[in-house]
Amino acid sequence: MGTPLLFATLGGVLSERAGVIHLGMEGIMLVSALVTFVVDLQTGSKVLALVGAMMAAGALSGLHGFVCISLRGNQIASGLALALFGTGLSGLFGDALIGSTVTSLDRIPIPGLELIPILGSAFFNQDWMVYLSYVLVAGLWFVLFHTNWGLQIRSVGEAPIVCDALGLSVAKIRYICVIFGGMLIGLGGAYFPMVLTSFWVDDLTAGRGWIAVALVIFAFWHPGKAFWGAYLFGAAIAFQLQAQVMGLKIPSYILEMFPYLLTIVVLTVVTVRNRRAGQTFMPAALGLPFFRGDKH
């Protein structure tokens, strides 16, 4: 349950680190899930399906980038438009796919690691997309915080005017991050037909894209925290089901609120602690369009 959230959150982190808020995740996830399903159905190739999903997701995210970066439109509104547009597209073209199915990915245990008690089988007896998500967490963390690219990306998110003065192309870096971020979000959508539900139904992702929007902020724009955030949220849902199996007498509609309330509480505690320590993690230029030539 945590994996699609993780992919999408990572995509959001990349995009927002460069200063572009990404609210359109639900739309991208639905369209990429649809594309994955269609390509897999037509070709039977998981790799092609994934490539197709990432291309579609990149294109949609590029549209978001075009509106936000080139047309300097409001990022939150554009994201919302993307969410609606993607939901609409997947609904309009998805109806024809009902009643077909694809195969889902097999689990590949990692010898040795899967034998670690409790966590071993949870983390190391998974399909290859899960392992890919681990690699991406580490990779994104490395790129953002230990490479020159990462420095440029973060600088563009913090102080685009300075970057511009130093000769960096703010627009180019933002486009790259928004499009690659979109592709990561697309992996989150692809995970549904690839692993979770290898059939098509309307609104397959059932609102997970919106949770990912919240998780990006929850993770304070950090890939490592995104990892814990996504799995914590997944675990909260699993707990809600497990509590019923174990016969705990908590009304299930109250349990239903639990993951959301937990997220709010943790976010509040962490925000307060960070403020005490004088830290703000939000990229300073997040959400602000960049006007080249503006010298305040």
């Binding site: 349950m1 699609p4 549904f192 979770l196 539900t197 139904v201 992702t205 059932a206 849902i237």
Partner: peptide, 8 residues
């Protein structure tokens, strides 16, 4: 309606 949660 939430297929992923039904799977879980």
């Amino acid at each position: 309606f939430d297929p992923a949660k039904e799977g879980a």
